[in-house]
Simulated assay, not measured.
Amino acid sequence: MKKAILKMTSVFVVLVFILSTNAYANQANKKLKSEKSTVKWLGKKVTGEHSGTIKIKKGHLVFKDDQLEKGTFVVDMTSIVNTDIKDEGYRAKLVGHLKSDDFFGVEKYPEAKFELVKAKKLSDGKYEVHGDVTIKGITKPIRFNVEMKNHGDELHVSGKIVIDRSKFDVRYGSGSFFDNLGDKTIYDDFELHLDLYLQ
């Protein structure tokens, strides 16, 4: 009787090990290489536009059976940089304004977050991504397309995200909140261009 129990227990342990090993083998966790990854931002107004960069401090993607399944990325809002303005004083003034409560209030909200909850494969390496973005403590659903390519042991992710800032209480110069702004209007939509590397 004891031998039978021991035998059944051994079979059970082996079975659990095999199943868990297969499950692990079918899942891959790709971690962001933040030092190599870049995100470029672009904001437009009636009289022109400004651009710059912002850093993603950490993130990962999870694949199951080689299909994108979920992921999380955390953006360092204190890392906002402008790259198109040549005058150092004007450039610093703009960056300071973007970090202020008029825009992203980075002292109170130093991080923004994107959580991928679903991905639809469009073609080889191309996905329609669905998730939730959190800015200034406000979370809204979003969807956008990305393209993924393997370069050796690295995964390169590129894509463009368009975010309506008015949905996150970023009001300054917005025609959604103020009337008669004229040529001082700053458009609600801003763009993020992704150039991410994961391993």
Results as ranks from 00 to 15, higher is better:
residue 16 V to D: 04
residue 177 F to G: 12
residue 13 V to C: 13
residue 191 E to W: 05
residue 166 S to C: 15
residue 11 V to E: 03
residue 121 K to I: 02
residue 152 G to D: 05
residue 51 S to A: 04
residue 193 H to G: 03
residue 11 V to P: 02
residue 21 T to V: 11
residue 104 F to P: 01
residue 24 Y to E: 11
residue 22 N to D: 02
residue 89 G to L: 10
residue 112 A to H: 11
residue 57 K to T: 08
residue 38 T to M: 12
residue 151 H to V: 06
residue 31 K to A: 00
residue 85 I to A: 01
residue 29 N to K: 15
residue 126 K to L: 02
residue 137 G to D: 02
residue 196 L to Q: 00
residue 101 D to R: 11
residue 144 F to G: 00
residue 154 E to I: 03
residue 105 G to S: 14
residue 75 V to D: 01
residue 114 F to C: 01
residue 96 G to P: 09
residue 22 N to K: 07
residue 79 S to M: 14
residue 185 T to C: 01
residue 18 I to F: 12
residue 15 L to N: 05
residue 120 K to T: 13
residue 189 D to T: 07
residue 167 K to G: 07
residue 96 G to Q: 10
residue 162 V to N: 11
residue 190 F to R: 13
residue 148 M to E: 07
residue 193 H to L: 12
residue 152 G to M: 08
residue 123 S to E: 15
residue 38 T to C: 07
residue 40 K to V: 02
residue 118 K to M: 09
residue 159 G to P: 04
residue 22 N to A: 14
residue 170 V to E: 00
residue 94 L to M: 06
residue 180 N to P: 05
residue 133 V to I: 15
residue 44 K to W: 06
residue 22 N to T: 10
residue 123 S to L: 07
residue 81 V to G: 04
residue 45 K to L: 03
residue 95 V to W: 03
residue 164 D to W: 01
residue 171 R to C: 06
residue 139 T to E: 04
residue 178 F to C: 10
residue 121 K to S: 10
residue 86 K to F: 04
residue 49 E to Q: 13
residue 111 E to L: 14
residue 165 R to L: 05
residue 33 K to A: 00
residue 85 I to L: 13
